[in-house]
């Protein structure tokens, strides 16, 4: 009966993942490996960026809006924020579908999301990346790594660490069923600062991590060390988010850009 319960929980989490995220690894890999009839529009310089803004991301940039005359770096930063806000919204819905999460203390739910969403976001972002670039605008565009590197500082420092993480993370060859449990494990983490009912969350975390371990053994029988490797990725993601939060604070201080109120809430007093 216990094994049946574990399989049910794993299935519920995977279904919640497929239902709540507009992009997943299977979809992204289909596009990135050229198996779609509509290949993504490649953004590799200022000209192709402008073309993409007029078509793919017109809604996000607001072609008639305040950002129209701003420099490319600021417009790209704004687009990144829009995507982040959408993913945080999706992650919140996903978290609410994880059995037990909604019955946690509401303050603890806020804390788990505050500290977990960016780690989860960067773990999932890897699915949309290859060594040459990143899918954007729901897979209708592909922005090259070289173009992102060529932006002026500090904006050029934004994505390269995520590419470096993604290349190592993608080498583990996780699929969406693995990622669903991994993202749930990131969110249900008992050592976030300021949690009230730690033991309640630790019970949830233990069962999710245990299911993740069993699932990896069954889904990747050739890689016996996949589970410990993934545990190390949790630590790497925490470091990646710490550095990202510092960079965003620097941009906020030195650049004339606004930060979305939801992201401000998350970054404020984070680390």
């Amino acid at each position: 009966p216990q094994l049946a319960d574990q399989k049910t929980l794993a299935r519920q989490i995977y279904e919640a993942y497929l239902k709540n995220f507009s992009m997943n690894k299977a979809k992204a890999r289909t596009i990135l490996t050229g198996k779609t009839s509509n290949p993504p529009f490649v953004i590799h310089d200022m000209e192709t960026l402008q073309l993409a803004e007029q078509t793919l991301v017109a809604k996000m940039v607001g072609s008639a809006g305040a950002l129209k005359d701003r420099e490319a770096e600021v417009r790209i930063f704004h687009c990144c924020q829009c995507t982040s806000v959408e993913t945080v919204t999706e992650l919140t819905e996903f978290a609410k579908s994880v059995p037990g999460f909604s019955s946690l203390d509401l303050n603890d739910q806020v804390t788990l999301l505050k500290y977990g969403v960016y780690e989860a976001l960067f773990a999932m972002l890897a699915s949309s990346m290859n060594k040459d670039g990143l899918l954007v605008a729901y897979g209708s565009g592909f922005i090259t790594r070289e173009f992102l590197k060529s932006l002026r500082r500090p904006f050029s420092d934004m994505m390269e660490p995520k590419f470096q993480f993604a290349m190592k993370f993608n080498a583990l060859e996780l699929d969406d069923s693995d990622l669903a449990l991994f993202v749930a494990a990131i969110i249900c983490c008992g050592d976030r600062p300021g949690l009230v009912n730690v033991s309640h969350i630790e019970v949830m975390q233990e069962s999710i991590v245990h299911i993740l371990q069993l699932h990896l053994l069954a889904n990747h029988p050739d890689d016996a060390f996949l589970f410990p490797k993934l545990l190390q990725k949790l630590a790497d993601l925490r470091q990646l988010v710490t550095e990202h939060a510092q960079l965003v604070q620097e941009i906020k201080k030195t650049e004339d850009t606004s930060l979305h109120p939801l992201l401000q809430e998350i970054y404020r007093d984070m680390y």
Partner: peptide
């Protein structure tokens, strides 16, 4: 904590309210 995270709090309590982009 809820006071400092009003949007997160709202997202947790109500899935239908959109977040302005």
């Amino acid at each position: 904590l809820k006071e400092k995270h009003k949007i997160l709090h709202r997202l947790l309590q109500n899935s239908t309210s959109p977040v302005e982009l």
